Simulated scan of single mutants.
Amino acid sequence: MVRPPSFCGVAPKRKAVGSPTSESAPKKRSTRVPVVYEDDSPPPPAPVKKTKSKSSMSASTSSKKKDKGKTKQKKEEVITISSDLSGEESDVVIEMPKKEGKAAPVKKNKSKVPAASTSTADKEKDKAAMKKQSSKVSKVSKASKARSLPFEDAFPAWFSQFAEEGEPDKMGGEGIEKLFEDMELSMEGAHPFILAYRVGAAPGTFGSFSRVDFKRTFQPFNIASSSTLSDWLAKAHDEIMGSVNEYNFRRFYAFVFPFLKNEGAKTIPGEMAVAMWGTVLAPKYPLAESFVEYAIAQGDKFKAVSLDVWTQMLEFCEAVQPDLTGWSEDDAWPSTIDAFVEWKKEKDAAAA
């Protein structure tokens, strides 16, 4: 067992515990040679000194034994301490033997396991955040580059990213999905229809956009990137869906039916009409949400919607409250709306 550095030099210092007589005792023992005196006088009585010397030697011997005992005891303590602190890097610290049973290193090792897993999870999150940030930076750099270029140079390269293969002047379904993904906007809401309305899409062109409409609409605003179009479209959405000015919304609502209707048809599929009412009417009018529930409950019976029903539905939602206040049997509503009123009355009565 290697002794701690602090143990070196302890034993010599402990010799000071004995009296100075312990150091002079060996000198007296070495001078026991008989002394010859010139005169015949008897020598001084030595036994007294010898007795003192023996007592001092005895005291010195006992003190040395005590010192040895103490030294031995200290050795045992140091050995116990050194075995207890074998894994530490700091100086020797005297501890009671009771503390030997502690298993602190084991606890430290156990606590490191979840910390490592947490660190791994944090690293994955950091990587994902960095990737997302890098994507945003890339989009911003592309947008700034597009702004720095003249519209005539930036627009063709931007639109061609979403154009159909073999038809450079048309953006089809896949291209529209890619555009909205690039703009980080959902296609589940009214945004695609508001975009079609603002670019002046022709009737019956649902599911596609033309290069001509985009260029005519966005050239005055110098919009030739997905990021700038996203900002522009978000403002247009708020102006139409969130504005108190019903004129903007009514014009947009009137645009949707011919845009959805196929060329030569007089109606639009009932499923399509119900989906659009849930998208553009229900967020503004609670009564429209109830009508959507009614139409879904009809199933295949709700086959098609005419322009008259489409137009009157907006009038009905504006004039009648969710509890049917404002409705009258004398009003000339389409039969589809009258059937809905009867269904809602029965439902409300059953719930009461």
Rank of each mutant, 00 (worst) to 15 (best):
K145Q: 08
M130R: 02
A128Q: 07
D153Q: 12
S134R: 05
S119E: 07
S144R: 06
K123S: 11
D126R: 12
V140N: 12
K125L: 06
K131A: 09
K112G: 01
T120V: 15
F151S: 02
P150S: 07
K112A: 02
D122A: 15
K145M: 06
T120K: 15
A129P: 02
N109V: 15
K123W: 07
S111M: 08
T118Y: 12
S144P: 03
K132C: 00
S135T: 04
S117H: 06
K123A: 13
P114H: 02
L149R: 08
K139S: 03
V137R: 10
D126V: 08
A121L: 13
L149Y: 08
L149W: 08
N109A: 14
A143Y: 00
P150T: 02
K127P: 01
E124H: 07
A115E: 05
K110F: 11
K108P: 02
T118I: 13
P150F: 02
A128I: 03
V140H: 13
V106R: 15
S144F: 08
K145H: 09
V137C: 10
A129M: 08
A146L: 00
P114D: 01
V140M: 14
D153R: 09
R147Y: 14
A143R: 00
V106A: 15
K123L: 11
D153N: 09
D153V: 11
A121V: 09
A143G: 01
K142S: 08
K136H: 12
K127I: 05
K132H: 01
P150D: 06
A121R: 14
S119L: 07
S134Q: 07
K136W: 11
S119K: 11
R147F: 15
S119W: 04
F151M: 05
P114T: 03
V140T: 14
K110Q: 13
K123H: 09
A129Y: 04
S111Q: 10
A146F: 00
A143W: 00
E124I: 05
S141Y: 11
F151R: 01
S134V: 03
K125F: 02
K110C: 13
K142A: 11
E124V: 06
V113L: 04
A115M: 06
K142V: 06
A129K: 11
K139Q: 04
D126S: 12
K112D: 01
M130C: 01
K132A: 00
K131Y: 03
T118S: 14
N109E: 14
S138L: 05
A146H: 00
A116V: 15
K123R: 12
F151W: 08
K145A: 10
E152Y: 09
E124K: 13
K139C: 01
K107Y: 03
T118R: 15
K123C: 07
V140E: 14
K131N: 04
S134M: 04
K145P: 04
A146Q: 00
F151H: 05
N109L: 13
K110D: 13
R147L: 15
P150R: 02
P150A: 04
A115R: 06
A129G: 08
K112I: 01
D122W: 09
